[in-house]
């Protein structure tokens, strides 16, 4: 049982860590395009757009590396849930006000054809949120026992 549950944790860490690292790479590569994607969400004030675009991808990379390498797991799993939660709310907010943004989640390329519908982003992000929330819960519960 115990070994099994440890394996689940490990798999979860690798999945989420992989998602975070994968999501960060294209944004790191194309800062201007990512800034445009942040702008298109029309949530942040203009003076925060560029600093967000500069910092966020690296934050995602650090979180992803921590998750995979098993470093600072409580903090990394907590931050991953928090970030995915924020993204989820941002997409939900824009869906609610009828703004169809290209989400810029994994790729900064802004194709001229219709992107995936907002509903799909919400379902995908909701799934990530459940995974991250569960990982965070498991890590923190394990740690609590250890203290």
């Amino acid at each position: 049982m115990r070994a099994n549950s440890q394996r689940v944790l490990l798999v979860l860490r690798f999945i989420l860590g992989g998602i975070f690292i994968y999501a960060s790479l294209d944004k790191i590569h194309h800062p201007a395009a990512f800034a445009e994607a942040v702008y298109n969400y029309k949530i942040l004030p203009a003076y925060l757009i560029d600093s967000t675009a500069i910092v966020l991808p690296w934050l995602e990379l650090v979180i992803g590396l921590c998750l995979i390498l098993g470093l600072w797991l409580p903090g990394a799993s907590f931050l991953s849930s928090l970030l995915i939660g924020i993204f989820f709310v941002a997409i939900l907010f824009n869906a609610a006000r009828g703004l169809d943004v290209h989400c810029g989640c994994f790729s900064t390329s802004n194709s001229t054809t219709h992107g995936a519908p907002m509903g799909w982003y919400l379902i995908r992000d909701g799934l990530f949120l459940v995974l991250a929330g569960y990982l965070c819960f498991r890590v923190l519960r394990g740690k609590r026992r250890a203290f």
């Binding site: 500069i54 910092v55 966020l56 991808p57 690296w58 934050l59 995602e60 990379l61 650090v62 979180i63 921590c66 600072w72 409580p74 903090g75 990394a76 907590f78 931050l79 923190l140 740690k143």
Partner: peptide, 18 residues
């Protein structure tokens, strides 16, 4: 512990980005 690690990760990410 969570708080310190969160601060550490934020600091690393922000520093790297800048």
């Amino acid at each position: 512990q969570v708080l310190w690690q969160v601060i550490g990760i934020l600091f690393l990410g922000i520093a790297l980005g800048i």
